[in-house]
Amino acid sequence: MVRRGLGGLVGIATVLLDDGLAAGRQGWLGRVDARAKLLGLLSVLVATTFLRNLGPLALCLGAAWALAWFGGLDMRRVALALLAVPAFTLALAAPAAFNVVTAGTPLVVLCHLGGGHWGPWRVPEFLTVTDRGLFVAARFALRSAACVSLASVLAAATRPQDLFKGLRGLGVPAAFVMVAAMMTRYLDLLLRSAEEIHLAKLSRSLGGVGVAREQAWAAAGMGELYRRSRTVAESVAEAMVSRGYTGEVHTLRQGRWSWQDGTFVAGCLAFGAALLALG
């Protein structure tokens, strides 16, 4: 299970970081400047978090998918990110649908609880799904789906390196962006090291050795991973100093915006404002 998990993580990191798969090269959305995409889509995303009604939330979700479709993105990639939403949302939002969490008019009676108290909590007579609870759960699910869709449209339409450039262009401190870029850069190296350590252990194992031994091995593996990470980190610092880094980050400037970039941002800002007006 650990091997499959690590293998899966390496695969996901490879897919996410592989510029060849980034749909940023496809369609007009990919050609929009990273700063414009960041500014525009993040403004819609922020507006989404303030919405309280289901209609505007559904509209936002639909708009995100329409943007992905008409923007020429790889819809499978956007959909893949959305797969995580139901599991995440169900775990967090489902309890809100019941009367034990959200009071309201009962819509469906699920079972008889008998009333009384359980510790400091009052137990209702029946476990029911309430109208208010259902609304709260649906709002949470829709908001999550809309936000994840907007974020995956941004990620699918922009290569990681352009995303970091975009962040710098929007005034995020260069040192912060550099650290974030390095974390992304070395993520797959870290995962590959973890996989190697695990495979090295597997190749010398003959079946189960007991929980205590497995725990000891896991701790030793983490220690070795930390040691390797530190070694790489020290070498990276040396490589930076060797090429003239003295503690102040200097980066390339960004190109100018085109009229398409400006139009995209204006459109996103107008859409976000319209969503807020709809509530």
Binding site: P160, Q161, A181, M182, Y186, E238, T251, L252
Partner: peptide, 24 residues
């Protein structure tokens, strides 16, 4: 460096090459 992964720390090849001259 022996380990190229340690030497290549920028998000793209272009930025990698530009790193040294930018510091200068």
């Amino acid at each position: 460096f022996q380990n190229s992964d340690a030497q290549l720390f920028c998000p793209s090849v272009e930025e990698e090459l530009a790193f040294g001259p930018l510091q200068m």
